[in-house]
Write a protein that binds this DNA or RNA. Structure first.
Length: 401
RNA sequence: GCUGGGGUAGCUUAGUGGAUAGAGCAUCAGGCUGUAAACCUGAAGGUUGUGGGUUCGAGUCCCACCCCUGGCGCCA
């Protein structure tokens, strides 16, 4: 029993921001040994599951390991309507085929963290299964459980109201839809990022009204992306869970120092005591943050790939970026001529979109051939021997005749 | 029905009828570094919502249309 208490403690502390209605009640339920049904809903608009999602998935995984029933809900219906919480007005409606395809890759990606096999496999559901079936009458019935005042409490709406910006009526329906998900699946708990708090709480309202039942809500912290803003596809600052070890390692190395500890806490399994120790070292400047980041990158690659690949990625990183050597592997193209103008080569190989861009990069000193900076744009390359092209810091290409 | 604001780069926007439409953020490259961040240098990015008109000359003025949007009225 002691062990269960410890696990529950851990479950409800790390990677947790808030618990509704309160932590104590959820703790009691969990300690009683009762199995809960819980879910996390993802928006299928972007095909990548990134480390931000992984934080939530890890929380689900913990519940899964304790024997609770976990559901990954694909918001395919919601995805087809468009997301109101951003001001991204237009969002291409997804076709049914696209949704299925996304769902497939979602599950594959989520499988990096969650288990979909074995004794207590996580389930995948689609909310179109029930949302498509609702009649207008049903919808009105659902909305009658909310007041406009409740909806307006939402920060986002308050802000827009005071700025005189529009609020679409349909935007009030999103929380209602999400809430209905909870009711249909009859869950005991919903987990999501703090940005979803309002929507998840709407589920509590509906659950109480329609099923006279308590639904817990647990929020996890949002993970900042490479540049410190919220990790989001539209900012281009994401690290995908299925990215190649090399890319993953490199991207982690490029996060700002202030995020190191947060990343350790949220996306690795390094113990909290160890993290505290690292944080102290960092604060006392006993360690070069770069070294710590290498450890972080290693842990993350290990987490999503394997220890072996993490070692390799670390080695490769040191080789290419710290010792400025040539990577062991790189893409390769073959050309038919023995002598090719450099600008043509850059365009053919898709390293640049136009000759102008290629010229610019060369003039700025961003192009190397066999580790020598190219200085003149109108150079012709002799391909009797294969050459190695480098554009910027990261792009390499081997060219053969 | 009445009325106000707006549409210029991926985003936010500046721009008296007068030169090649300018800036910040984001992007890309270089420098400094630790592939950090910040900073410095440089670059790319535009059919100025659409179509007409006036003019030597229109982002700017006129007309029509399209799109976004605030408010009022109509329901006591």
């Amino acid at each position: 029993m002691k062990r269960l208490e410890e696990k529950v403690n851990h479950l409800l502390s790390r990677r947790v921001v808030e618990i509704f209605p309160d932590r104590k009640q959820l703790r009691q339920q969990l300690e009683s040994g009762q199995k809960l049904r819980l879910y996390f809903g993802v928006d299928p608009s972007s095909p990548t599951i990134h480390l931000g999602h992984a934080v939530v998935l890890k929380k689900l995984r913990q519940f899964q390991e304790l024997g609770h029933e976990v559901i990954l809900l694909i918001g395919d219906f919601t995805g087809r309507i468009g997301d109101p919480s951003g001001r991204t007005a237009e969002r291409k409606p997804l076709t049914h085929a696209q949704v299925l395809e996304n769902a497939q890759t979602y599950q594959e990606q989520a499988a990096k963290v969650l288990s979909f096999q074995g004794t207590n496999p996580a389930k995948v559901k689609f909310n179109s299964a029930w949302l498509d079936e609702l009649t207008f009458k049903d919808v009105i019935g659902l909305t009658s459980h909310f007041t406009v005042q409740q909806m307006l409490e939402r920060d986002m709406f308050q802000t827009r109201l005071s700025e005189g910006k529009p609020i679409g009526l349909h935007e009030f329906l999103y929380p209602v839809m999400q809430g209905y998900d909870s009711v249909v699946m009859d869950v005991d708990l919903e987990i999501g990022g703090t940005d979803q708090t309002f929507n998840m709480l709407a589920g509590r309202t509906l659950m109480a009204a329609l099923k006279q039942k308590e639904k817990f809500v647990l929020t996890v912290p949002l993970l900042e992306g490479l540049d410190g803003r919220k990790m989001s596809k539209s900012f281009g600052n994401v690290i995908g869970v299925t990215e190649k070890p090399q890319d993953m390692f490199g991207k982690v190395m490029s996060i700002r120092d202030e995020l190191i500890i947060k990343y350790f806490t949220l996306v690795t399994e390094v113990s909290e005591e160890e993290i505290k120790r690292l944080e102290a070292q960092l604060n006392l400047k006993e360690v070069n943050p770069m070294e710590l980041k290498k450890k972080l990158a290693f842990e993350i690659v290990k987490e999503f790939h394997s220890e072996k690949e993490a070692h390799e990625a670390a080695k490769e990183f040191e080789k290419v970026f710290q010792k400025a050597e040539i990577p062991t592997e790189m893409p390769e193209i073959k050309v038919t001529e023995n002598k090719v103008p450099l600008l043509d080569l850059l365009v053919i190989s898709n390293l640049v979109v136009s000759r102008t861009e290629g010229r610019r990069l060369i003039e700025q000193g961003g192009v190397e051939i066999n580790q020598h900076k190219v200085t003149t744009p109108n150079e012709t390359i002799d391909l009797n021997e294969p050459v190695i092209l480098r554009i910027g810091k990261r792009k390499f290409l081997r060219v053969k005749a």
